[in-house]
Design a protein around this nucleic acid. Structure first.
Lengths: 193, 193
DNA sequence: ATTATCTATAGATCTATAGATAATGC
DNA sequence: ATTATCTATAGATCTATAGATAATGC
């Protein structure tokens, strides 16, 4: 059946690409992007390095796919979010160290010159700050209990999430990431449950 | 003069090592540690890569020297610090993006497996959390105005400092790092100046 | 025909070792 | 004698290209 077979081929190819992206996420978590070799990613999916390049013609193309994958899973919180959903997100993150490690390593690398993920992160943070501002405004109006505006609170909230991730990845037993984040929400004026 | 000459030789050697460490800080800021080549560091001080290995026998030995250098400059805040001194530290940091970039890149890399700076950062954060707790306790006693203890506030304070650095390095024009940090101190209960 | 995968390989690197040579300081 | 520095080079990688071969789907 021509149509079905074509579709099967497409699906199979898409699945292969997904597998490769998944392997890339793992290898980047272990070695960072600069330290990740195509051969290591290929080996994890049972391909040669050259076989992998059939799906992603360059190493950067694979990174682009990794970042798109992130956008699919980790949607930037939008206006419909509520502040208490953020606490759930942090709790969820605490259950998936590998993926947090991947993107923490990438964020760290991205501040170096000419890093291929640099503009991705720069633009993402612009977006995340805007959306977080909207979430805070929806919840608190133009002033939080502290007197700060949503605009000035948003970067702090994001900084706490990112900064806690590094402390937690380095020393998970010493850092209660979700608890600390709830403490921060309490500082913002959320009632303690 | 034997004694003087020996001393001069020692001083010259120490100076050379310092120069090399300084060049390494720059190259790491640009490329991260894994991406930094000994040849690039050597070139900056007018040496061959093999000449550099006379001073630091391995790449990891050079990294150790870089981290020790940090401990010399960026003393971990101790008990004598006061909270408002932290605001000055952040202001000072905003004037030296290169060094902040070096250590932000290293921190990011350090969460990957077997990274040679991993234990350095893990131990440093244990220390920094302890000292920050003591600073907060000296300032506020056992409870901050928010009701949080110093122990639970310290990781948040550190997370804000680190997280703001990434946002600021990626997009200095959009992020007022010292202003945001003062906002956070205000959340803790510091009076606004 | 197109897609998936492989072998071979070019051309850059990179770290580190071996050992020579020059300069410095007893 | 020791210290500083160099040339030569081994031995690993790494990305990417070229082109062959096999499998898939018209």
């Amino acid at each position: 059946m021509s149509y079905g077979d074509v579709m099967n081929a497409r699906v199979r190819s898409e699945e292969r690409r997904s597998e490769i992206v998944g392997a890339a996420l793992e290898v980047i978590a272990e070695r960072g992007y600069r330290g990740a070799s195509l051969a290591a990613v290929a080996e994890r999916v049972g391909l040669t390095q050259q076989g992998l390049l059939h799906y992603f013609p360059t190493k950067d193309a694979l990174l682009v796919a990794v970042l798109q994958e992130r956008d699919r899973w980790d949607a930037v919180p939008d206006t419909r979010w509520r502040v208490d959903l953020l606490a759930s997100l942090v709790e969820y993150n605490a259950m998936r160290p590998a993926i947090i490690q991947t993107f923490s390593a990438l964020l760290g690398e991205s501040v170096t010159e000419g890093h291929p993920a640099r503009s991705y992160f720069t633009e993402r943070y612009v977006q995340v700050r805007e959306n977080m501002t909207a979430v805070l405004r929806a919840e608190y109006g133009d002033r939080l209990p502290s007197g700060l505006t949503p605009e000035r609170t948003a970067p702090l909230l994001i900084a706490v999430m990112d900064g806690l991730q590094y402390q937690w990845l380095l020393d998970p037993d010493s850092v209660d990431m979700p608890g600390a984040f709830r403490d921060f929400l309490h500082l913002l004026g959320e009632p303690v449950e």
